[in-house]
Design a protein around this nucleic acid. Structure first.
Length: 467
RNA sequence: GGCUGGGUGGCAGAGUGGCUAUGCAGCGGCCUGCAAAGCCGUGGACGGCGGUUCGAUUCCGCCCUCAGCCUCCA
């Protein structure tokens, strides 16, 4: 029985899809004007694992996963101007870069990745509906605003009330708004800005409305799960609720999920603070799977502190799992160890407790190591189970030998010895060992160690890996 | 100031009203020519002060402290 922490109720609830056989999931994706950073990686990986698990329960063809792309907003326009290029060229380029990152991280492709600029009619139509219903007004400056005072439930998701928000007075007063809390649905275009025609003149949509229009457009007025980063809870998701429920007259979303932040030195990593690392930067030093594993070590709602040391730790942990799989027949047609499968599912059923799920993987690895020289068929069952469960998390996707010999490092790994050279040296060393020439044997081993190559003499011969 | 979520062993990170998390690192042992890997064993923890309880790291209160949101941000 899957339970999910619903941010709307602030508690864990048993998950029941609106349509018992089909699940509908929407996640707020990227604004594409720059490379994705580790915070983006976390959303991508966290919801990828959630998506995979929902597919496991309901069947892949019964889960609709939508992750939008914001491809028009102030920052995109500003960046395109800085670069002196058309904003479409900019966004197109960074959409490609994002897809390169998601592929590297083994993030599955959603059913759809709707883009704001390709859904203008639906966006404009929703704004028209809001104006017609009295929830929105066109201001003197050509902008259209949502009238927050008209939506009685405003603030429910983020635990705020309108009075407190007003008391905060941190919202800069915009003369065109009736109330500082009102937010923009349609922005009138300034000269030279990209724009679309609308009943209120040329302009572009506000950020929040695109998600209301595209999510309901893709999934229907009322769907199951809506996710995104913690920071989107307010105002973005709050505003989405206000827009969607006012426009459709129906409940918008049953379950709201928000993942925690990535931190650097105990501080939020963000573009505005400038303390961020791009996914690409990390992949130069570490294999993508190390980053993916690192993200899954903590619960999705907890903060995740980023550092090289933690990634080194993640790499070492992955090596342990791969070492257990090395030499095992993973394509053997054997049943799974159902006790472990049950424990894995129990962990995932508990609000996607990936740390607990990973612990199950390590216990399986230990079993494999224990049994491999005693009871090969029993060990194979454990190994196959380990591989299968890891698949469900999108982990252990490499061949174990290839992983260990590759060293779990990223794209620009320091070039070392070729495999053939290493094999030759190992042969020389083994000849020395056969002659009990330990000095020579150790000399070769030390030589290789200097190159980051670690030898392991086993019953079946000498194997090697990169540290 | 308002609201939210945290503070767990050297580090990371789950969890539980009494019973081993797990990983990395450490220590002892087995294995090995010696190592490495693996296995066995082992030490070490629940921010502080009260309260509830037979018993609290786990529930309640207060305090300290950290982070986040209240403004674009995953």
């Amino acid at each position: 029985m899957l339970t999910i922490h619903n941010n709307l109720s602030k508690q864990k609830e048993t998950f029941k899809p609106i349509d018992p056989k089909n699940v509908r999931l929407y996640v707020c994706g990227m604004t594409v004007y720059d490379m994705c950073h580790i915070g983006h990686a976390r959303v991508l990986v966290v919801f990828d694992v959630i998506y995979r698990y929902l597919c496991e329960i309901y069947g892949k063809e019964h889960v609709s996963y939508i992750r939008n792309i914001t491809d028009i907003d102030d920052k995109i326009i500003a960046r395109a101007n800085e670069n002196g290029e058309d904003f479409n060229d900019l966004t197109g380029r960074f959409i490609d870069e994002m897809h390169r990152d998601t592929a590297a991280l083994n993030v599955l492709t959603p059913n759809e990745e709707p883009r704001a600029t390709l859904h203008m009619p639906a966006i404009i139509e929703m704004i028209q509906t809001l104006v017609a219903k009295g929830y929105a007004y066109a201001a003197d400056n050509g902008d259209v605003y949502y009238d927050v005072s008209k939506f009685t439930d405003y603030g429910r998701l983020s635990g705020k009330n309108i009075e407190d928000l007003r008391a905060g007075e941190r919202v800069a007063v915009d003369q065109a708004k009736h109330d500082p809390l009102d937010f923009v649905l349609w922005k009138a275009a300034k000269v030279g800005e990209p724009s679309w025609d609308s009943p209120w003149g040329a302009g572009r949509p506000g950020w929040h409305i695109e998600c209301s229009a595209m999510s309901t457009g893709c999934l229907g007025n009322h769907f199951d799960i809506h996710g995104g980063g913690m920071d989107l809870q307010f105002p973005h998701h709050e505003n989405e609720i206000a827009q969607s429920e006012a426009a459709t007259g129906e409940k918008f979303v049953n379950v709201w999920m928000h993942n925690g932040f990535v931190r650097v030195d105990e501080e939020k990593m963000s573009k505005s603070l400038g303390n961020f690392f791009t996914i690409r930067e990390v992949l130069e030093k570490y294999a993508a799977e190390v980053l993916r594993y690192f993200i899954l070590t903590s619960h999705y709602r907890s903060p995740l502190n980023y550092s090289d040391k933690h990634l080194d730790n993640a790499k070492a942990a992955l090596n342990t799992l791969y070492t257990a799989l090395r030499g095992m027949n993973l394509t053997a047609e054997v049943g799974l160890d159902e006790a472990y499968v049950a424990r894995f599912r129990q962990a995932m059923d508990d609000d996607f407790n990936t740390s607990e799920a990973l612990a199950v993987l390590f216990e399986l690895a230990k079993d494999v190591n224990k049994l491999r020289h005693q009871d090969e068929s029993a060990a194979t069952v454990k190994a196959v189970t380990l591989k299968q469960l890891a698949d469900r998390l999108g982990l252990l996707q490499s061949d174990a030998e290839a992983w260990l010999q590759g060293g779990g490092v990223g794209d620009s790994r320091a070039e070392g010895l070729e495999a053939a050279e290493i094999e030759t040296l190992i042969e020389q060393r083994n000849a020395a060992r056969a002659a009990k020439d330990w000095a020579e044997s150790d000399r070769i081993r030390d030589l290789l160690a200097e190159q980051g190559i670690i030898l392991e003499d086993g019953a079946g011969g000498t194997s090697w890996r990169r540290e």
